[in-house]
Nucleic acid binder design. Structure first.
Lengths: 207, 207, 207, 207
DNA sequence: TATGAATGAGCGTTCATTCAT
DNA sequence: CATGAATGAACGCTCATTCAT
């Protein structure tokens, strides 16, 4: 069951991009680690840029599947909404935890690359934001949330909260690749969703 | 009143780093735009890396001054706390708005650089997080916030929220350099601080 | 029968190092003369320093083979010893004559280079000195030479004599690269070995 | 009694050329160590090359004075000749010992420099050789040495012997700048002059 | 499919030298 | 005499990409 060379290259490239960064990773590093010749790389991919875009496109697809499959369609009350969000966040965090390299590329190391690279990342975030916006909109229509007339902005804040928290949780304050998360997924989910809906004050905050 | 060459280089370099990214900016670009010879650059800076670190260190210092000077010391009730936070956020957003290039470097384009560059960014975020944590801790001690035993994590979520929102507000969903913010500072501050303390549900959310 | 590119580069580099000196020879000179691209140089060698060290190591090896193979093992009397030395010197001078560029690098032009370069040269001389010391020591043990209790020093004087004479003979007083030796090898060998054993006074010197 | 700036620069430059080599020594190193500004250097010297040539010309002059003043004019017999040579060698070694930096430049580090630099060194050696040749010629005319019809060559061998021995004695086998000579001047002189006149066999060698 | 030698434009950096003050 | 900022040509090296086999 020999590994397909193309997949091997994709895998090795992702690992190196995540470890050393896109720019610092040479094509020669990739082929060396994959155990193939330099030319072989260019049989499968047009350029270094193409492979990273392929990686990110694939990653975005998988990530969006998670986000999209996350919400239950029929919320009833706030508790349902919170539970639903918790389920989504749990899925998201699990996915992130199982795809550390991808998350590094999407959330951290990719930002400094070329225009196209940055756009790919932005598009991913926009897509996530859109999903969140849809959900918020629906909740508003169900009169579960007050209509503050800035759904997009709220979705964007939520996206910032989630992506920032994920990257901080997975890689620690200094973005160390081998950082071991100190909080359990459940604790993070609990706190994050609480924050999502109730902010710092929380449900029982004195007003 | 000839501009000091060193400052000129710093300014030009920041602009180019923000516009094209650190890697894509050549030293020759910087000196060309500054109108000095290649060697002049190396009279003032040891390397391309040094100048970007200098820029970021200086930027971090100014940014932290804003964050640090932001909070009032003697909050009384929740309204005070919220007002205090609003004042801070307003200062932060004004600063960001007036230092777009710096924010690009700190929040967007810097991430893909060398190890040292990324560390410089991480350290900045850590410093902000620390300020936020201090404030949350104080609010807890004043019994204005419930002690959820995860102050650090809360501070980190807050940092994610704020930095993400700022970069999204200033540069739009696609991180365009010339993006014109569509929301006024006051609106952003209102919504962000509301979110900070009350989450999506908000003060008057039906439970 | 295409020449191996690596060997071609080594050969061209040696010639240029000998002609213009290590520092004055640019990598671009080497590749231009070899008719390959700049990058090709770095396919075969890590750096300009590496190639010169490789050249010198190879040269030292060949030189030491000559020195080592030079002496007969079983000298009987002084005449044998003198003849043996003549054979060695003849071999040495032939080698030097056939490897002018190498000798230039080892004896003349290399000295001003980097630390490693100079060390490589010193090590070569030390190795030669050691061979000479062994031979002197053996001659003492055979009671063919008086034990003056300074074998090392004698070997060093001999090394100075031989290397100095070779470089002076091959390249003339002004170290000209295209100098034509004015004395035949046999004459030089005769006089040098006479000097080696009998000094200025010579065998028949009046005392 | 402030040190003359020009002399200071000469002194500092010699030290650095000897320590780091001509090429590795930057003009900025010299002025930094001398505590003057970069421009000052060029008030006193036209170029980096000029200063090293000045240094070497001055050094050669002093060295030749020693060599020239070395021989007694009226040798009588071989013992006189040997004694006379011993006196010269002792002077030479004392001079070398007191001018280590100069000797490094003349005998070791200078060789790899530019054409002019190498010529300056060659000329020095030629001048020494000439002095030696004169002395040998005179000894032949006094019938103290056999006329082997190769006075120049003999002088050259003698020069090789002397210069090689000096550099090896002062700086050790690896040309270390801080090497401490292990033999006393007198021992070196004894052995060197013995070798000069009698070779390895020596006066009492069995023939 | 796969190899790996070859390419060459381009970059960061160096440093001897100049010159206005 | 002295300063030190400014110059700019030049060099070693990189690395994504190509191509003959």
């Amino acid at each position: 069951m020999k590994k397909d060379t193309r997949d091997l290259l994709l895998e090795v490239a992702l690992e190196l991009f995540a470890t050393k960064g896109y720019h610092a990773t040479k094509v020669s590093d990739v082929v060396k680690k994959a155990g193939v010749a330099q030319g072989t790389f260019y049989w499968y991919f047009e350029s270094k840029e193409e492979i990273v875009l392929k990686i990110m496109a694939e990653g975005r697809k998988k990530l969006l599947e998670v986000v999209h499959s996350g919400y239950r369609k029929e919320e009833g009350n706030i508790r349902d909404m919170v539970d639903s969000s918790k389920r989504l966040m749990k899925k998201l965090l699990s996915f992130a935890s199982n795809n550390r390299n991808l998350m590094i590329l999407l959330l951290l190391k990719g930002q400094g690359g070329d225009e196209k690279l940055r756009n790919a990342i932005s598009e991913t975030l926009v897509a996530i934001e859109k999903e969140f916006a849809n959900n918020i909109q629906r909740a508003i229509e169900l009169q579960m949330l007050e209509d503050r007339d800035c759904v997009e902005f709220q979705a964007q804040m939520l996206t910032s909260l989630v992506t920032g928290t994920i990257s901080r949780w997975l890689f620690g304050p200094m973005h160390e690749l081998n950082y071991q998360p100190s909080l359990s997924i459940d604790k993070v989910v609990d706190e994050m969703v609480r924050y999502e809906f109730f902010g710092l004050i929380g449900q029982g905050g004195r007003q």
